[in-house]
Amino acid sequence: MLEFLKKGLKKTRDALKNRLGDLFVRGEINEEFYEELEEILISADVGVETTLMINARLREEIKNNKVKELEAAKALLKELIIGMMGGEEDVALSVPVSRPAVYLLLGVNGVGKTTTIAKMAYNFSLEKKKVLLAAGDTFRAAAIEQLEHWSGVVGAEVIKHQTGGDPSAVIFDAVSAAVSREADILLCDTAGRLHTKKNLIEEVKKIYRVMGKVIPEAPHESLLVLDATTGQNGIAQAKLFQEAIPITGIVLTKLDGTARGGIVIAIKELTGIPVKMIGVGEKKEDLHPFNPADFADALLA
């Protein structure tokens, strides 16, 4: 994964003139150092509050460990971020004892839900898994066609109704079909929805309930898809979706651009939701497990 990230972020590095690099070779650990660190973190969408927190913790670590060298300070900082992002925690998706594993994808409009489903399906197909897709976006024009296109590419069947139909009805059918057809994996697409729209959040709850009617433990993962270019609003997104149903992980997409997705640190701090996967492009191969160390490297690259 590191390679992808590095490639994607190379231009950012150029754009940012490798400031952090400068930061850590130049001079000593003084106020200017913390100020520059603040700029780097805020510019990566970490947010003011979380940035101040990281800064404060770093100061403390530096003091406690009697660190004088910049290299050592950088290592501490990286460790700090890795720790905040879950450290060695396992990011693998939860798999039930008996199939199918049912995964639900949610998020605001345009973040990459459908594409992520395609990528996941592709990855599972490499593992020779039988994958079904549920066309739960019955709202957006041509959303079903989009999923059908991908189903052809990755060789997974789509369970669909019509545009304008009730999404929980499609999902119900899809979970039932996944059971009866003995699929290994069911990936459920949903329409993009802003977390602030009460009726659409209610719809999510209903979808969630309906899944449980067929398989009590389903969905086995409810993944919030988050666009890495998102700023502080990511926090509200995570919180409000989390209030509706238990979100088990985040898929951070579009890390192939120059945005770094620093908001996930604040989200992890505030909600405990871990990042499980990252999207680094538009092709089916462009999905990878999240790795906190690589993320920290890229954030501070």
Partner: peptide, 12 residues
Amino acid sequence: VDAMTGQDAVNV
């Protein structure tokens, strides 16, 4: 431009 965009908006 997505109104929810963060700091990267300037680069884009």
